[in-house]
Amino acid sequence: MDYGLLVIGLALVLVSYLVGIKKQTWLLAGFNEKMIKNKSLLGTVTGLFFFLPLGLIVIINSLIDYHYEGTILVVVMLTLLTGVYVFINRRLMD
């Protein structure tokens, strides 16, 4: 059991709750607020479709030890990030 990954996973689930449910979009860095059409949808998409799955996967990886653990985690993270990035740029940007 990797306690460092467990803490990171719990932090990601907390950020998911704050961004996805409470709509605290100020936690998201690197976007121009004036170009986003719907900040509520931005919070939902990033919180529930990026941070939550990533946090749960990190928690599962902290509990289970298997071969190529790091590689699979990076591939899943980049896949989630790419999907959310494409959705935000196509649907939420002016």
Rank of each mutant, 00 (worst) to 15 (best):
E33H: 04
E69A: 12
M77G: 04
L73F: 10
F31V: 02
L10K: 00
V84Q: 09
L28C: 04
G83W: 02
I88P: 02
L73N: 07
V19I: 15
Q24V: 03
V15F: 15
L28V: 13
D94V: 15
L54I: 09
L12D: 05
L18P: 03
M35V: 13
N32M: 00
L14R: 12
D65P: 06
L78E: 08
N89G: 11
Q24F: 09
V45C: 08
I59M: 12
I59A: 04
S40Y: 13
K23S: 14
K34R: 13
I72T: 04
W26R: 14
L6Y: 07
V86M: 07
L92A: 00
G20D: 03
L5N: 09
E33M: 11
K22E: 15
L27I: 15
M1K: 09
D2H: 11
V84E: 12
L92G: 00
I36C: 06
L28Q: 04
V45P: 05
V19N: 08
I88K: 02
G30Y: 06
Y68A: 10
D65Y: 13
L12P: 04
L48C: 06
R90V: 02
V86C: 03
Q24K: 15
V76S: 09
S62D: 03
V19W: 06
S62T: 04
L63V: 13
L10Q: 01
V76C: 10
H67L: 13
A11I: 12
A29L: 08
T44P: 01
I60S: 02
W26G: 14
G9M: 02
V7E: 09
M1Y: 13
L14P: 03
V86H: 02
V74K: 15
Y17M: 11
G4P: 01
Y3D: 06
K39N: 05
S40W: 12
G55E: 02
Q24P: 01
K22S: 14
K39C: 07
N32G: 10
K37P: 00
S40A: 13
M93N: 09
A29N: 06
G30H: 05
M1P: 10
M1C: 12
V15H: 09
L5K: 07
L81N: 11
H67S: 12
T71S: 05
Y68P: 01
Y3M: 12
I72Q: 02
S16V: 06
V86I: 13
L48G: 09
N61K: 00
K23Y: 15
D65I: 10
Q24W: 14
L5Q: 06
V7G: 08
E33Q: 10
L73Q: 07
W26D: 14
T44S: 13
D94S: 14
G4E: 01
G70C: 04
V7D: 07
T44A: 14
L52T: 03
L92S: 01
M1F: 12
F51W: 10
M93Q: 13
V86P: 00
L18F: 08
V45R: 12
V75R: 04
Y85P: 02
L80M: 08
N38H: 11
L10T: 02
M77S: 11
P53C: 11
K37C: 00
K37L: 06
R90E: 01
F31M: 04
